[in-house]
Design a protein around this nucleic acid. Structure first.
Length: 349
DNA sequence: CATGATAACCGCCATG
DNA sequence: TGCATGGCGGTTATCA
């Protein structure tokens, strides 16, 4: 955390900001997930540190306090700054006051520092102006207030997280897990992220958005209406299956199926399936030596040109560059050396 | 990069 | 009247 870090290949520093009344669960997510990302020889890939405004212990939303390691000055040397939600019992004004110092610190970060929020931590990012004219999300219960308070932010209340490049926001609570996994996937590839997910016993990738978690006025059946169709599609990723067939399998008309799908999953069937295809392509690029056009065929993207297009949209690099960075040949070196973690372009969700 | 065929998407509206 | 359904068709996206 000093200037001498330039001397040795530095670990990626993740700083978690604890404000008064911080939600201990959300605050712990980065330490648990980033902390589980290790190189094959067991070295930690990230250095997760915590801080409060003045470096003193912080009361949490539960009946215990946490002793943090630092004050806000560590943010200057962080590669990633994460703001969990805080101050549940405080008024909006009080929360604003409590986070003033963090707002100032966020505006003053080194260029290229990645900033992320979990749940209503997005408020702090918005107050710092980091979300202006960018897509962002927050807890579904906070979406309307958030959009009202920060009209310059393009709020998307349906997704689990939004990656706007160097600013990322996640939906409520456990969506922070998805966000952290996403950052790990971005930094070190899907394989490392999947290992972390296994270690933490969480799904490596959750389908769809937070829409499916919003309580409906009418209690919904607790199984998914489109789930079997999705399973079927996943088992046949390499084949093109017309939507009418999906709908048939779900015993719905085409129109009702697409509508239901969007409700349950949070995006259109087409968006969803290309996501799945790109995910598979990434895995194949990472773990096999298959030629690019065969990877494309296997994951249903058809041609190498198509794969190139979709991979570029998802992670900002070409298939060969992706394989060079994350492929099996490089498994033993630290990808951090090969790819500065901020080198990938802005990625929508 | 351009292009045209095809599929997907989604607002709209009638129906039950 | 409220609500889910599903067909229609204009617009958009995809891909060879």
């Amino acid at each position: 955390m000093r200037k001498d870090q330039a001397m040795c290949p530095a670990k990626h520093i993740v700083a978690v900001v604890a404000l008064p009344g911080v939600y201990a669960f959300e605050m712990s997510i980065p330490g648990r997930l980033f902390g589980a990302a290790a190189t094959p020889d067991g070295r930690a890939r990230y250095d997760v540190i915590t801080c409060s405004v003045d470096g003193r212990p912080v009361v949490t939303s539960a009946d215990f306090a946490v002793v943090v390691g630092n004050d806000l000055s560590v943010l200057a040397s962080a590669d990633t700054v994460i703001v969990p939600p805080f101050g549940a019992t405080l008024s909006a004004e009080e929360r604003g006051e409590m986070s003033d110092a963090v707002v100032v610190a966020l505006r003053d970060l080194r260029p290229g520092t990645r900033v992320a929020s979990i749940c209503t931590g997005a408020d702090v990012l918005a107050r710092a102006g980091l979300l202006n004219n960018r897509r962002a999300t927050t807890h579904w219960r906070n979406v309307d207030d958030f959009q009202r308070d920060y009209p310059a932010v393009q709020v998307d209340g349906d997704v689990l997280y939004v990656d706007a490049g160097d600013v990322l926001t996640s939906a409520g609570a456990a969506a922070g897990i998805d966000l952290c996994l996403h950052m790990i996937r971005h930094d070190f590839g899907a394989d490392v992220a999947n290992t972390v997910a296994r270690l933490c016993v969480v799904p490596p990738h959750r389908d769809g958005g937070q829409a499916q978690y919003i309580a409906r006025p009418v209690p919904r059946v607790d199984y998914s209406l489109t789930g079997t169709a999705r399973e079927f599609a996943l088992e046949n990723l390499d084949r093109h299956i017309p939507l009418t067939v999906w709908a048939d399998r779900a015993s719905m008309s085409l129109r009702t199926f697409t509508r239901t799908f969007r409700n349950e999953v949070g995006c259109s069937p087409g968006k969803w399936i290309t996501q799945q295809r790109v995910d598979l392509a990434r895995r194949l690029l990472e773990t096999t030596d298959l030629p690019i056009d065969q990877v494309a065929a296997r994951c249903g993207l058809g041609t190498a040109a198509s794969l190139r297009l979709h991979l570029k949209a998802a992670v900002g690099v070409s298939p060969s560059a992706y394989r060079r960075t994350f492929g099996i040949k490089n498994r033993l070196s630290t990808p951090a050396d090969a790819s500065p973690s901020h080198s990938f372009g802005a990625v929508g969700n």
